[in-house]
Simulated assay, not measured.
Amino acid sequence: MTNKGWRAALIISAGLGLSVNASAGFKVVALGVNGGVEEGNLTSYLIRSDDQSRYLGLDAGSVLPGIGKALEKGSFPEVTSENSAPLTPKGAVFRNLISAYFISHGHLDHLAGLIIASPQDSKKPIYGSAETIDTLRQYYFNWKVWPNFSDSGSGQRLGTYRLNAPRLGQRFSLGLSGLDGVIYPLSHGGIGSSMLLVSRNNDTFAYFGDTGADRLEKSRHLDAAWRALGEEIKQKRLKGLIIETSFTNQTPENQLFGHLTPALLLEELTHLEGYAGGKGSLKGLKVVISHIKPSLTAGADPRADIRQQLEQGNDLGVNFLFMQQGDSLEF
């Protein structure tokens, strides 16, 4: 980040009136919530601790359109035209308030916004599994698909992004966000995806990239993630999680391509309940439903159908939340 960028970030931060809190909680802003089709509203979230001013990007399918919508909705009250100068408010959020990115896997609907906006971005790190970072290096930042804005790989390295692949299961610092993270592997229709467990002080939050159910993926990855989150719930640290539910229950299992339905998510959350202490242990847990696939069929409303199907089967007491692009929530 340039000196001007640092000054702008400090000015914006000062407007927050932040103070260190032993249990601060998190703020999440949705920059994109859909799982494909609509290129302006693809999976992308921002998260920060309530005692920090800068955000971590959780995937980056749509970035600048989502920032614009979030500004319209008042999700960045600390950002004004005055304290953003010489940037626009959208530019100030993009360049100064997003301090790093976590990319869950290499599919285009989770990183297109980052790629397209990279010529205007400030220097920052990108974190992901070794498979994801290798995909970015080989197939995106390679001067064939896009100029190499990273610090490794082929051709001239422009160095905007520092690519990092921390060891799975090992805690690490997430840039200048003040957050720590642990990456857990997921299985997504034959490719690797990942979950990030974010932590700050004594609070945690889980972000899941695309994932299929263990039963269909013939995997134990979700089981390992549930074991970890079960312990977080027992210790009263887990503030919430974001997980996909891409298709309705009417979708045949052989056409899910590594995604979840309401029935499969509820099935998986039952396993989490077992690890969290048994019946009733998930009551009130905030679960944001992400990556719903829009339909181009007249009269179809997958979001409404998925919401109804989750609520009908919800004997866990989970609080299912459906964010729209630009929304912000406190956890």
Rank of each mutant, 00 (worst) to 15 (best):
T2M: 06
G5K: 04
W6Q: 14
A8G: 11
L10D: 08
G25Q: 02
F26E: 00
F26K: 00
V29M: 09
A30G: 05
L31G: 03
E38A: 11
N41H: 07
N41V: 13
T43C: 06
S49Q: 03
Q52V: 11
Y55L: 00
L56F: 02
L58A: 06
G61W: 05
V63A: 01
E72T: 08
S81K: 15
P89C: 06
G91H: 07
V93Y: 03
V93I: 14
F94A: 02
N96P: 09
H110R: 13
S118R: 03
S118K: 04
D121Q: 07
S122I: 12
K123D: 10
G128K: 00
S129M: 02
S129K: 08
I133Q: 02
R137P: 15
R157Y: 03
N164V: 11
P166K: 00
R167M: 07
R167V: 13
L168D: 00
S173D: 13
G178F: 06
S187R: 08
H188A: 08
I191S: 04
R200L: 02
T211S: 14
R215Q: 09
R220K: 10
L222E: 07
D223P: 10
W226T: 03
R237G: 10
K239M: 10
L241M: 14
T245F: 06
Q250I: 13
P252C: 02
N254P: 02
L256F: 10
F257I: 10
G278R: 01
S290Q: 09
D301W: 04
A304R: 08
R307T: 15
G313S: 05
G313Y: 09
L316D: 00
V318P: 11
L329T: 07
